[in-house]
Nucleic acid binder design. Structure first.
Length: 565
RNA sequence: UGACCGAUGGUGUAACGGUAGCACUACAGUUUUUGGAGCUGUCUGUCCAGGUUCGAAUCCUGGUCGGUCAACCA
């Protein structure tokens, strides 16, 4: 090779700690160079942006290093799980743009196998059926500072345990009367090693196995063994499972497994400012009707973000930018907003919509004349086509774009001031008509025909306004969303306070608006920019003749900032 | 008062014993028929104390601070 290596300019791609582990394993031929990750949601709720981070991590790692990813539902607690959630989760993963290795898997697929493995442990005298109540077990476990006490049933014979376990399975005991426990170490400094429960009795209908079982495996027992059964190489979970890793490894070791030995690795979950991320709290917001369902556009759920107008690409970029590490973090929601603006700025068609209209009359424009003015659909896109925008004597502009007595740097319309109407003409405000309450009801202007958009003109103005021709205006409904909470960390409030005390009362405002005819072409699932206002997305309930838009995010607004400060 | 995990600008995240970089935020300039976008720039950082070393964000020791762990939840 005569290629010259230039070390000083060569930049090593920076890898997160999981990528480093995977690269090393691959390089060292661990698992025969195989990479198989998994995304293991419990179908007891909807996916949120934190799960999206985990999805991007697991699927992303496999994509990057030529591996595969399983989608496995961790459905070991039938009282909390349902197919509604299963379906919603599959839809979200697909929508994010990831493909799992077929078929979809379930921990419940392995209930028979798990039972056999439990019997194996009993035979090795590594598991036993305990008769103590939940409370007794809990107190018997001791505290992190003091060792626990051994169960009276810890040393019963293998034969008796086998019989007891069988009786648990066939339903001879009531819920809570028996439990299968691993026999490990009641004095371990790790609470999870103090004879953890492997099976409990639940006479519950399971969404997949119906009433076949009345004993169900606990997470720690089911999860690692499912990983092993599937041949998972890297089992990636969040930090709270760090203490479980010792147990994860203990089960695998004592099962004398052959073949791929899965390894558990932990990373820090995502936290976002101005929202909550715990499933319990999200469920509470839904059930207590603070929001309109799991896919309410204010929710940090994947379905909520989708309805809000976020794109899969923006969420994947976001997941990329937040990074992966082991320290607790709190991501500023403005990073998420940046990611969607960045995407939509490049890709969203533009249209003019007025949300708080005031009538403007161009006195010197002929009464019965209408023009169709060409306007670029997306100035950021070199290939962009044009749309035609109707213009005539009477138009709407935003009330905020006019001030009778403006401050110094107000570049918009005011008596005697001149502005450009985007894609149209420069106008000058001549007079104002007010109603009985003193509110401006009509603004009268003069236009300058030689300033038509595209023409060379010496007249210069500081401001450009969007507008909508009244004759042809399309009436629409618009939902203006803001952050759901008024404090950056609603999950971290003082004692005696509840996260719900900090719900932002103004997180949703509904207004009527008027749009140019082009917005009739807007459909749900696609993002648009209403010029100078923000990005909007047609709601799923939007239909021709009844257009409803959700505001995804505003444009940055340095004028509003200056005004405030 | 135990065990485990962690600590780099306002927020995240790199640097793997050799120039503390990148992104977001904030601010400033430039540009603009979106007060948007773009472009340019600025501010702000290695938790503390010792040690090893020619050299420490990085290795060692001790502290401090934060998080996690006592469900028949996952």
């Amino acid at each position: 090779m005569d290629k010259i290596e230039n070390k000083s300019t060569e930049k090593k791609p920076s890898l997160n700690f999981l990528e480093q582990i995977v690269e090393n394993d691959l390089k060292n031929g661990i698992n025969d160079g195989r990479l198989l990750t998994r995304f293991p949601p419990e179908p007891n709720g909807y996916l949120h942006i934190g799960h999206a981070k985990s999805i991007c991590l697991n699927f992303g790692l496999a994509e990057k290093y030529g591996g595969k990813t399983n989608l496995r539902f961790d459905d070991t607690n039938p009282t909390k799980e349902s197919t509604e959630y299963v379906n919603a989760i599959m839809e979200d993963v697909r929508w994010l743009g990831f493909q799992w290795q077929e078929p979809v898997l379930y921990a419940s697929d392995y209930f028979d196998k798990l039972y056999e493995l439990a019997v194996y442990l009993i035979k090795k005298s590594k598991a036993y059926v305990c008769h103590m109540s939940a409370e007794e077990i809990s107190t018997g476990r001791g505290t992190p500072q003091t060792p626990g006490k051994e169960s009276a049933w810890r040393n019963t014979s293998v034969e008796q345990n086998l019989r007891e376990f069988e009786k648990m399975r066939i339903g001879e005991y009531k819920e809570g009367e028996r439990v299968l426990r691993a026999k490990i170490d009641m004095a371990s400094p790790n609470m999870w090693m103090r004879d953890p429960v492997m099976y409990r009795i639940m006479f519950a209908h399971h969404h997949r196995t119906d009433n076949k079982w009345c004993i169900y495996p606990m997470y720690d027992w089911a999860h690692g063994q499912s990983d092993y059964i599937e041949g998972i190489t890297h089992s990636i979970c969040t930090l709270e499972f760090v203490p479980h890793r010792q147990l994860y490894d203990w089960f695998l070791e004592n099962l004398d497994i052959k073949g791929t030995r899965p390894r558990q690795y932990e990373f820090a979950r995502l936290n976002l400012t101005y929202t909550v991320m715990s499933k319990r709290k999200l469920l509470q917001l839904v059930e207590e009707k603070y929001v309109d369902g799991w896919d309410d556009p204010r929710m940090p759920t994947v379905s909520g973000l989708r309805r809000r107008g976020y794109t899969p690409a923006s969420i994947r970029t976001f997941a990329d930018r937040v990074g992966v590490a082991k320290r607790e973090n709190m991501i500023d929601v403005s990073l998420l907003e940046f990611c969607i603006r960045e995407d939509l700025n490049k890709n969203a068609p533009r249209a003019m919509v007025v949300l708080n209209p005031v009538k403007l009359i161009i006195d010197n424009y002929p009464e019965n004349q209408q023009e169709k003015l060409p306007a670029i659909i997306n100035p950021e896109d070199a290939e962009s086509k044009k749309r035609m925008v109707p213009f005539s004597r009477e138009i709407y502009i935003e009330r905020e774009d006019f001030m009778e007595d403006p401050p110094k740097k107000f570049f918009r319309l005011a008596p005697g001031a001149e502005v450009r109407l985007k894609y149209a003409y420069i106008i000058r405000c001549d007079s104002v008509i007010k109603d009985e309450q003193g509110n401006t009801s009509e603004i009268h202007c003069t236009y300058f025909p030689d300033t038509k958009s595209g023409m060379q003109s010496n007249r210069k103005v500081k401001g450009t306004l969007h507008w909508v021709n009244i004759d042809t205006a399309v009436e629409i409904e618009v939902k203006l969303y803001d952050r759901l909470f008024s404090v950056p960390e609603p999950e971290n409030v003082d004692e005696g306070q509840d996260f719900k005390d900090f719900i932002n009362a103004d997180s949703l405002k509904m207004v009527k608006g008027y749009g140019e005819p082009f917005i009739n072409e807007f459909f749900p699932g696609k993002g648009f920019q209403f010029e100078r206002l923000g990005y909007f997305s047609a709601d799923k309930e939007s239909a021709p003749g009844n257009l409803i838009f959700n505001r995804t995010v505003t444009l940055r607004d340095s004028w509003a900032k200056e005004n405030r400060g």
